[in-house]
């Protein structure tokens, strides 16, 4: 089943923890920049979704 145009997951670092609040999408916290990149890439490939950079250190995964 495809869930389109909906935030599937949120990936951010512990430092930017306050920028996201809990919602329906799972939030993943990364230790550093490298892990952030890796986690987002992994979820993106697995769910066939696209990683978007909100510009404030928060990455969201959306399937288009």
């Amino acid at each position: 089943m495809d869930i389109n145009d909906y935030i599937l997951a949120i990936v951010t670092s512990y430092e930017d923890k306050d920028k996201v609040d809990n919602g329906s999408a799972p939030i993943f916290y990364a230790e550093d920049e490298e892990e952030l990149e890796y986690i987002s890439m992994m979820i993106s490939r697995l769910t066939k979704s696209m990683v978007h950079d909100l510009g404030n250190g928060v990455y969201v995964l959306i399937k288009h």
Binding site: H52, D53, G55, Y59
Partner: peptide, 22 residues
């Protein structure tokens, strides 16, 4: 845009790409 994440052509933003690799 921030982190140069917005791909654009002639100042029209087409897509936001989050991954560095991409």
């Amino acid at each position: 845009g921030p982190n140069n994440a917005n791909l654009s052509v002639e100042d029209t933003v087409i897509m936001n790409v989050g991954l560095k690799e991409a």
